[in-house]
Computed example of a mutant assay.
Amino acid sequence: MSTPLAVTRIGHACQLIEVAGLRVLTDPWFTQKATYYQGERVASTVADLGHLDAIVVTHEHYDHCDLDGLIAGGIDLGTPLIGPGTVATIARAKGFTDVRVVEAWEAVSVGELTVTAAPAKHGVHEVTFVLQAGGRTVFFGGDSLRVPELDTIPERFGHVDLAILPTNGLCIRPMNLEQVVMDAEEAAALTAVLKPALAIPHHYAFHSGRLGDQMITKADQDPRHYADAVARLAPEVAVRLALPGTLVTVP
């Protein structure tokens, strides 16, 4: 029997991954401010999450690194927090006491969990993550663009059970619509390479408010575009569009 693996989408890129009895929170975002709107309900408070074995943070953007929200919600500051050096500097300054730095292809362990950073590309320094425990493997894509190094994940880590990928193709209007996040087609093409048992899109409901959407960001908010693209490019891969708060069990 396979080691149990499940994921609950809290909102945006914040996921609660449960594998081999370990509970890992990704890219926390629990609060809201001008030009940063989840666009969907946040499925849990920090307090209601319960015990966490680790927190993994891909980069320092507010919608992925809401450490103030964690602290205000009563997070245990001794919880292992894993991320690149840019995130580690912020986390230590805010009082987190077990901060572990990983850059691309470096790994750390928390009990039976191994967290390996993989390459990424975004508007700031970012890593993505491969999480492994009990013979299960999860790829967490943060909000990276698709970079060629990610195609090597299956040969480096073997079978991928779950892939969680951004899909909104976020573009920055003041930067001549420079794209900073992979879009649905790019995410589907990466899915075809990763060949996970299950793929879940995220990072699509976010918006910048009525004025911000007109002046700051442009993005695809429909995850069905990703599901349709995977159906064309990797029809053997199951896709689940998970609402916040829904527990998804990975076969």
Score class of each variant (00 low, 15 high):
214 Q>S: 04
230 V>S: 07
198 L>I: 06
95 G>N: 12
198 L>P: 01
129 F>V: 08
162 L>N: 03
118 A>L: 15
3 T>W: 09
124 V>S: 14
12 H>Y: 14
210 R>V: 09
36 Y>V: 12
29 W>M: 11
145 L>G: 01
219 A>Q: 08
8 T>I: 13
193 V>W: 05
240 R>K: 09
125 H>A: 15
92 R>P: 07
137 T>A: 02
22 L>D: 00
135 G>L: 01
211 L>G: 00
126 E>T: 15
134 G>H: 03
124 V>M: 13
47 A>Y: 04
9 R>E: 02
52 L>A: 12
100 R>T: 13
208 S>W: 00
207 H>E: 01
234 A>G: 07
118 A>Q: 13
158 G>W: 10
29 W>P: 04
192 A>E: 04
247 L>T: 03
4 P>S: 03
55 I>F: 13
92 R>N: 11
205 A>I: 04
17 I>N: 00
49 L>Q: 06
197 A>L: 13
198 L>V: 11
156 R>C: 05
147 V>A: 14
99 V>Y: 06
218 K>L: 06
104 A>V: 13
105 W>F: 15
230 V>T: 06
21 G>Q: 04
196 P>F: 03
155 E>C: 03
132 Q>P: 04
150 L>A: 12
206 F>C: 01
223 P>L: 03
142 G>N: 03
8 T>G: 05
16 L>R: 07
147 V>T: 15
129 F>R: 06
37 Y>H: 15
21 G>C: 05
194 L>I: 09
44 S>M: 06
245 G>P: 08
171 C>V: 00
30 F>W: 10
89 T>L: 13
159 H>F: 02
67 L>P: 09
199 A>F: 02
71 I>R: 12
103 E>Y: 12
147 V>G: 12
75 I>T: 08
21 G>W: 04
109 S>W: 02
146 R>Q: 01
116 T>C: 14
191 T>Y: 05
117 A>D: 08
198 L>F: 02
7 V>M: 13
219 A>T: 02
94 K>Y: 12
86 T>Q: 09
57 V>K: 02
75 I>N: 00
124 V>W: 10
251 P>N: 11
218 K>M: 08
173 R>P: 00
69 G>H: 10
1 M>I: 10
121 K>I: 10
78 G>K: 14
93 A>C: 10
59 H>M: 08
3 T>Q: 07
243 L>Y: 01
186 E>C: 01
231 A>I: 03
109 S>K: 11
215 M>H: 08
181 V>K: 00
12 H>S: 05
215 M>Y: 12
10 I>L: 13
216 I>D: 00
52 L>I: 13
158 G>A: 10
210 R>S: 08
124 V>F: 11
166 P>H: 02
90 I>C: 08
176 N>Y: 04
238 A>N: 02
69 G>T: 12
24 V>P: 01
179 Q>I: 04
151 D>V: 07
244 P>Y: 05
9 R>D: 01
206 F>H: 05
131 L>R: 01
187 A>Y: 09
91 A>E: 09
50 G>N: 05
178 E>A: 14
141 G>Q: 03
170 L>P: 02
152 T>K: 15
155 E>H: 09
152 T>M: 13
98 D>L: 09
90 I>Y: 07
53 D>S: 04
159 H>P: 07
240 R>S: 02
147 V>E: 10
99 V>P: 03
118 A>F: 11
154 P>G: 10
88 A>E: 08
157 F>L: 07
40 E>Q: 14
58 T>A: 15
83 G>N: 08
4 P>H: 01
116 T>M: 13
199 A>G: 02
34 A>N: 05
64 H>C: 14
